[in-house]
Simulated assay, not measured.
Amino acid sequence: MKKAMILGAFILVAVAASAAELELKLGADLYRNATKDATGHNPVKGYPGASIGAEVLFNEDSPFRFGIGAEAKSKFHASGGYDGHYSFPIYAVGKYDFADTLYAVGRLGYAEAYSGGADNVDDANGGIYGALGIGKEFYDERFNVEFMYEVAEYDYDTDFNTNEDGYYHGFAIKFGYKFGGPSPAPVVMAEPEPEPVMVVEPEPEPVVMEPVGPPIPLEGIKFQEVFELNSFELSEAGRAEIGEVAEKLRGFDGKLSVEGHTDTTGAASYNQTLSEKRAESVAEEFRTQLEGENITVESQGFGENNPAFPNDTIENRRANRRVEVFWEPAKDME
């Protein structure tokens, strides 16, 4: 039990440090079988059992997610009063999405064993643990159910002065709920450049041309996929994209307003902080690019409060993760 508490504390620290996705698991072991009993001679078909555990997953916006997990299984019981060991698997886990809400899952690690006063067993030792299965997600990918085949080594020191080793087999169904996780890197949604309209007048009168404003539309410019994954640090491509806009602003007087937005994935407080940091990163890059120009640059983060679309599909959530830039000429500020 002490080892399980230490592992649980480690998982919570990992989640807090990395803003990873935490998944809580409840399971039912529908079929359980041990290849040898305490005397080392007969296979034992056990009664159904239960399990509880947690997993920390990374790379949440990719088809392949990976992480670590731990699980505590109920004691192995069988007919005739047979009393076996507790099992505590600790493992690496990988999940691969092969359809919209379907995925394959695999585990590999070590299963700690504990006799817990089992009949005829002085000490129970664990061994290699592995599992394969298939899962399905529900309700905006927050809930899931997994069907798995599991196998683990065990080694008994018995009352018969023998050392018996064998394998634990089982089929299980596991229910999961996940929360947390960072807002993944935005996806490019480029604004189309308006095609120029040319008006040809025969023998035009001389026209005095008035200065025109910078080519920033009234609805602003959206920057997406300008950050490294799960970061507020600008990518090289992002710096280049901001540099193109800054070049068009040289020679003008006015103010740039930079606004950061996220989707609803993860905690609201985390999304608010991330939107502020990403807006300030874009604003600071504009200040650097426009140094010496009479242009004020301000930033503000709105978190998940101003979505452009409902957060009900993956595509809409990607569109909501954005940084928008608005221009106000100096004459409008007077």
Results as ranks from 00 to 15, higher is better:
73 K>N: 10
89 P>E: 04
31 Y>R: 10
37 D>T: 07
76 F>C: 00
106 G>I: 04
105 V>R: 15
94 G>Q: 06
89 P>G: 02
22 L>G: 14
85 H>G: 01
91 Y>R: 05
32 R>H: 05
115 S>A: 13
49 G>K: 05
35 T>A: 02
73 K>S: 05
32 R>I: 00
19 A>N: 15
48 P>Q: 02
28 A>D: 06
49 G>E: 02
19 A>D: 13
72 A>F: 09
85 H>Y: 11
19 A>F: 11
102 L>W: 15
90 I>H: 04
11 I>A: 08
113 A>T: 04
53 G>A: 01
56 V>M: 15
59 N>D: 13
33 N>H: 14
44 V>W: 04
103 Y>A: 10
80 G>W: 04
72 A>P: 00
51 S>P: 00
83 D>C: 07
92 A>Y: 10
82 Y>N: 07
65 R>E: 11
82 Y>F: 14
102 L>Y: 12
19 A>V: 07
8 G>Y: 13
116 G>M: 00
95 K>R: 14
13 V>Y: 08
64 F>L: 15
12 L>Q: 13
32 R>D: 11
15 V>D: 08
78 A>T: 04
110 Y>S: 06
112 E>D: 15
59 N>M: 12
33 N>A: 03
52 I>W: 03
62 S>L: 13
40 G>V: 03
100 D>G: 11
31 Y>I: 14
44 V>G: 05
76 F>Y: 04
40 G>F: 02
42 N>A: 13
24 L>N: 04
24 L>Q: 06
58 F>W: 13
75 K>N: 04
52 I>T: 12
25 K>T: 14
15 V>Q: 14
21 E>K: 15
102 L>H: 09
116 G>N: 02
39 T>H: 08
44 V>T: 12
60 E>G: 08
115 S>P: 02
53 G>C: 02
53 G>P: 10
54 A>K: 01
31 Y>S: 12
11 I>F: 12
77 H>N: 12
13 V>F: 11
24 L>Y: 09
59 N>K: 07
36 K>S: 10
86 Y>S: 00
96 Y>E: 08
77 H>L: 11
9 A>L: 13
101 T>L: 09
33 N>K: 13
113 A>F: 01
69 G>S: 06
8 G>N: 15
71 E>P: 00
73 K>T: 03
17 A>R: 14
92 A>R: 00
37 D>I: 05
114 Y>M: 02
41 H>Y: 11
99 A>E: 10
114 Y>Q: 10
92 A>Q: 01
11 I>H: 04
68 I>D: 03
16 A>T: 09
29 D>N: 15
77 H>A: 05
65 R>C: 06
57 L>T: 02
19 A>M: 10
49 G>W: 03
110 Y>D: 07
94 G>I: 10
64 F>A: 14
37 D>N: 14
116 G>F: 01
59 N>Y: 09
79 S>M: 02
23 E>W: 02
21 E>S: 09
9 A>K: 08
